[in-house]
Structure formats: C-alpha cells, structure tokens
Design a protein around this nucleic acid. Sequence first.
DNA 1: GTTAGGG
DNA 2: CCCTAAC
Length: 691
Amino acid sequence: MALHKRIYYGFNGYQVPPTPRATRSPRTRSIPRKRTDENQMRAFDLLATVAGNILLEGNNSNSSSDVSNNNEHSASLEDSFEKEEHNIDKISNAELSSSGVCSKSFFVSELVNRSHILNNCLKERPHAQGDPGSGPASVITTSDCSMKIDSPEQIVSDRNKFLLGNSTRIAGSELSVSKVSVSCKLDCESKTHMKNESSDKGAMTVRNMANKFNSNCLVTGTRNPSVLLASDRSVKFSFNKDHKSSGFLPVDREGVKLGIRDDDENSGCIQPRTVNKAFRSCNGDRIRDSVSSHCWKVNPAMKGDPNHFDADRDRNHFPQDKNNSCKPQLPVTDYPIKKRKLYDYSSISKYSGGTNEDDCGSTPKGSTGNGPTSFMTSTGVTGPSNSSGVEHASRQRRDVKLKIKSFRVPELFIEIPETATVGSLKRTVMEAVMAILGDGLHVGVVLQGKKIKEDSRTLLQTGISHNNKPDALSFILEPNCPPAPISVYAKSPTFLRSRESPKPLPRYTDAQNLVHDSVRHKAATKSSDVPGSNSTNFVESDHDSAPSPPDMSQDKSVADSKVLVAVPPTNAEAQNMVPMRKPKRSESARRIRRPFTVSEVEALVQAVEKLGTGRWRDVKLRAFDNAKHRTYVDLKDKWKTLVHTARISPQQRRGEPVPQELLDRVLLAHAYWSQQAKQQLKLHSEARLLL
DNA sequence: GTTAGGG
DNA sequence: CCCTAAC
C-alpha cells in the first residue's frame, strides 16, 4: 500500500434558501399526489453550500471504475460481509428485525457493487414467504454512504450495505428517519439462510447472480427472492410468487450514484433520477406522498396485480437509465468522475444536533480500523493504479477519494402536537429535511473560491489533489436541471446570495392516508349493475411511487404535525445564497407527462365500466388509489382522450397503442353511461314535473 | 372537495 | 396536463 496522506477539509455547513410555497389552488393541492416538478423547481432554488471535510487519503487501490468489471470481488465481498456481521449489532433487533436494515443518511442508495446488492438481496429470509401474514413484502432499503468499492476491505470499513427486510414497515420514512444514524446491520441469519436456499432450490448462487449482474443481463431467480436487472441502473427485486411487491434499486453503472427512489415521475430534470428521487419531497402535497417518496418499500397489501406494471416500471421508473446506457455522454448521465466521487461516502445528518455522530461512533470501524473516522470525507490520492482497467491503461491516474461526512441542516422548525408519536416526529423531520433538500440537486465543486464548471476536466487538471489546502475545496448543492445562470456565482461561495426574497414558509403537514379508509369503504359499498368485470382492478402505485408505510395511515397523530422548513436566511451563512434561476412565472411546475400504460388503461376502463363516468374520485380510489401520480382529474382526462382515441382511426392514434379491445370497451362503457346519464336526467325531470 | 369541460 | 367555473 502506498502512503496515506490525509487532508481534512472543513465542512462549513449547508444552507438552504427558503422553499417557496406552492401557490396553486388548494384544490389541486388537496389531491394526494406528488408535485415533482414543483419540487424540482424548488430544488432549483436551493443553493446549499457545503464545505466538505475531505480527507485525502493515499492508496493504490484499483480504480473504482474498474470494479464493476471485476467479478473477483464478488466472493471477497461476501467474505467481507461475513466478517462484518460480527461487528455490527448495536441496533436493536426489534427495530431492524430480520430485515437488517439500516441507513445512515438520506442518501439512500448508492449501489456500490452489484454483487453487493445481490448479496443483500439474497438475504431475504426464505421462510418469510411462507408467512402470508407478514407478507412477502419486499422491502428494499438502502443505505447511504455508498462508495465505490476499490477493495473488499473498503466495503467492510464503510459498512454501507443494502439490506432487505421482509416487513414493509421498515421502509419508508420511518426507516429513513429513525435509522439515519445507525450503522448498517447485516442479518447473518438471513444471509445464511438465503445462501442455503439459493443453492438448495436451484436459485442462482450469489456469485452467479453477481456475475450476471455484472454483465448487465436480465437475471431472474428461479426462487424467491428473485432479482431482475431491469436496466443498467435499476434492479428489480421481487419476492414471492405472488409478486405482490417489488421494488427497484437504482444501479449506477459505475456503482456510484446516489440511489434514491422516486415515487414520482415528474422529474423533469435530466439529472440521474436516482439522485432526484433521493431528495424529493412534495411540497404542496400531502405528506403521504412525500413520505412515500423516500420509501423503498412495497406495500404487500397492494391490491390488484402489479405484475403487469412491471414492464412499465422498468420502462418508466428510471427513464434516463436507458439514456444513460445508450448515451453516456449526455450530461445527464455523464457523471464526471470527480462528481461521482463526491457522492461517494456522502451522508447527510438528519438532525442538526448531530446525533449521528454518536450513532456512527458506535458502529464498528470495520477492518480498516486505521482509517479515518468512517464518516469523514476522505480523498485518497493514489499512485498510478496497478491494475487499472484497460480503458485507463493508457494513462496513469490517481484516485481522489472523497467522503463527505455530513451535511448539516442549519435550521429546521417543526411543529408537532404533543400527542404525536415519536415515529411521527421522525417522519416529520424526515419530511422537513427532504423538503429542504428537494430533489434535482447536484453538487458543485468550488476550489479555492472558484466554481469549477468544467465537468470534463480531471481533478488533476482542475487542481484537486492531495496537496490541496484544507479549505481549498468545498462543495455546494445546487439545482441541476435547467442549467442555472451560473454567471451569478461570486468568486467565493461565501458571497453566494439568495436571489429570492424569503417567502412564506412552506408548511408540511403530515396528513397522509387519512380519509382513504373511509372513502374506500364508501366506494366499496357502492356497486353498480354495470356489466363488466367485478374484480377491482387496482392499479398499483406506479413503479416509482411506493405506497405509504402501512403504519402511516394508522398514526393519525401525524396528521396535524407540521413542519416549517426553508427557514429564511437569517444568519450570515444563510445569506450566502446566490440566485440560481429566474423565478418561473409560476412556482408550480408542470408535471411531466406520464403516458398511461396499457395496464393503467385497462384498470381505468374496468373501473369506469363499473362506476361510470361521473365518479372519477371513486374511480381513482378504486383503481388508482395507489397510483399517487394519477389524480381523478387525470383519470377523467384520460377517459376523455380514450373516448376520442377510440373514435378515431387507428392511423390517427399516437403513442403507445391501446388494444382495440380496450377501446371497444371504452366506447361501450361510454355509451352505456351516457345513456344512463340521459335516463337519469329524464327521470329527474319527470319527477320534478310530477311534483 | 369534485366534476365537467375548455385550453 | 392545466385551469377554472360550477356545484
């Protein structure tokens, strides 16, 4: 090993401008759904300066970008895990249960290594599937602070694992919040279990899966859990034969990206979705939505058969993924090495108080005990890589490893009733933090007061090296979508100033799922004599939107908790904001277009056949209750277009073709209900005449 | 808060 | 999808 030079950079903190409050009509706001665009825009407004503590650490490990091609790590990773398992366990089993979930920060998932993921996937307890009660809910949770894996040791030391749980309760905000500060825990038992099962029942072995994974093939386990690699970055996990649940992990090709789940589509941003989703929150929307936005969970109680949505998910969930794989040169996907590295090891402290530290401190240091504190940013400048990949063979390179210890959230006002549960408090805090972070952020690099915009330049060219002075390098979080006018950047981030005047603080109210039960009841009791299927076709929440945690609906106390976020800049730090973009004419961004899938159309048709064309709310509740991005207005509009589509010639139709059979049903149902409406009118008028 | 319909 | 009148 080479020398270990370590340079620590100071983290100055992180400031967020006031989050503009949505000004849209309350009506639209009331619909439980996400306003990603809104958040996106909000994200544009975010300008967070982050000074990073960067540890420059020399080592001569392999280039991290080569790792993904190195299957050899598969085995060693496993070994590492095994060792690791003995170290971990400060966390109460009650909390983590068999799921072995943990998360240190908001950065949900960076897929470190595919084999890594797979290993964890395989940890699902086999017997879980035998328990219908607990449900085979596949909970995919990820931890932050992922990093490229240069070596097995690194994994061990960083303890960032993906963990699977067999309980849906684990996922979501609860997990994200409550377990922010805990270190990862591996479930030895589960793991072993899974391994055995894998071999016993013909499922792929860990290594096989890893290998396949590495080769970007579609991997389908013959047994549960199965792992499907939907795309380069999205791994689909599905457990149990019922396919009641599934989840996705974004997988970066290089295994470096923040893997955050997005419930919502509307990320107009070209930023890798994984990142966007990570920080998404729903400003004007109900917490239910926003909460679920960071939930890597799948609701086992999901009605209907989500199966047929899988394809859609694969296609839509991470649309950019395709782009990425196809056009890696696109700025969107093209994460410059340095940026990627910046994400590495990143973690965000949820509580400004920094309880993380303690928790982190209690975590095992791993095999690389001599390393810096696990949460310190570290950069390693290595000598020429001994075994760099072919693509790098032509030139020497040094690796600069960055590890961001934490992002400090300056101020956070939370308003929550005393009767609220701790869990709800955690969720509320989560919401607030998520709101602050927003989504669509990317990291800007400021070196010696100058913002480095040339993403293509190497660190060496830029001047980032282990020779940097401690304060030379800092990071800022900034909107990444519409390239903000960067010209406003002052020479130093300390001069950054918020362009927008403080606005009313957005208020986040935790009010998810409150009415739905009763409403659902009501809707369920209603039935019509309309011909058609009687089975409720429940459209599962779309691929990227995870249903709210089951406990959320029960925790009524959450309903009135409010969070005030985006504190107006009051201190010097807060004023170091710079205008990032021109205020859009409206603060509400248009939602991105989300074409209905055939499955959704099917569900819609079925519901309308049953309920009619005048009860869109019921249709929504019936068939799209979990598709948070579909409002009843959407459904109504879709029906409108469906009717239109059905009436025009197939040649005139555009978009994904809707099966003629469905269109026929549309016309039929439409005619039927139109007739019904007329009859009703007639009856009414007659009755009135009689009176 | 929903519905209906134009944009 | 958005917007809004009307209920």
